[in-house]
Design a binder for these strands. Structure first.
Lengths: 105, 105, 105, 105
DNA sequence: CAAGAATTATGAACCC
DNA sequence: GGGTTCATAATTCTTG
């Protein structure tokens, strides 16, 4: 079941890994494809930075909203509603109504 | 948002419900076993209340830990570690070291 | 509330604990109030076990609901609604309506 | 679920709104600067969409990592570690060891 | 077993 | 600035 070529308990793989190191430009370090790992991590970090920048922008807008006199919590609620309501046009609404009626809600 | 618990458009369903109730102790409402549903929901709600009470107790203990000078985050980490199998802990630590080394950290 | 504050299998620590306790009722280990920490952790673990037991009970009820033919997802939704709706009897509802009207929602 | 976006009981507010609109291009609705609010909400929604797109990209990378045989949980841990100050990492590790020793783990 | 939902934990923000 | 609530991140569980 191990898709995992780098499972430490996988002796055959580890041996193969050592064998590859001499011939393989993949820069294995201790059986780990270091370059691949580094690439993955750096791409994630980069995207997370962008995400953080967007989060900061959003925060700025809420600060602006607040200083314009809006109740930020309610504005958030509005945004949530606008996200949810199209999703509520679902087949489950029927079922929900049915159950609510059964409960007298 | 609905002020009225009973929608006046429900006359047909209500009539059917009455009809079924006469013949069926299961108190069907619109084809739903209302009593069964109600029982399920109320039992879940009761258990969730108990769960919440326990969660509050746990929170109190962490507050106590904090005011006794412990680092709550690390205490949580300890609890997490104790929950894991020792072998599992070992495995993760090994892998972490391996990756760190591959990255030169 | 903890019945067994000392694990008998932990001989070294227990010995050290006794040694320090002679001079210090706080049973410090490396500057840490070990007994206090242990008590905190064990109480949390005990409560978490109870929490887990309740979670399992809840899971069982949902399994029962499913085999009785209810749509579990919708039942969850009902429970959520019953939790939220009393909270929506809030002063913020007015503001929310106001904003919605301003947006033509 | 309200079909009518405008409550007829709001005549006074509507009148006030019209009065303000004459003097103020801000298009007040019920005392709310509707355009301003709409602008805030739409800008937030736009940024949140971008945020979601980035989150999806990150998810893809972790999926790639997994299929390359890396332990995703440990990769996340690495990323978390790289985000922290080295001194902070050191501090937490020290504390963890201290607590573990105090508990005889 | 992969995708998605739901729960839990951590971190940020706001009020007092 | 401390504590409490809110929001996000992450893990776990369920389901197709």
């Amino acid at each position: 079941m191990s898709d995992a070529p780098f499972d430490t308990s996988d002796k055959a793989a580890a041996a193969e890994s050592r064998a590859r190191q001499a011939a393989d430009p993949e820069s294995d370090v201790g059986g780990i494809a270091a370059d691949r790992l580094r690439s993955i991590i750096e791409r994630v970090e980069r995207l997370e930075e962008e995400r953080k920048a967007l989060a900061d922008d959003i925060k700025d807008i809420f600060a602006e909203a607040k200083s314009a006199g809006f109740d930020v919590k309610v504005v958030r609620q509005i945004i949530r509603l606008r996200k949810q309501e199209p999703a509520e046009v679902e087949e489950q609404e029927t079922l929900l109504d049915l159950y609510r009626r059964a409960l007298g809600m």
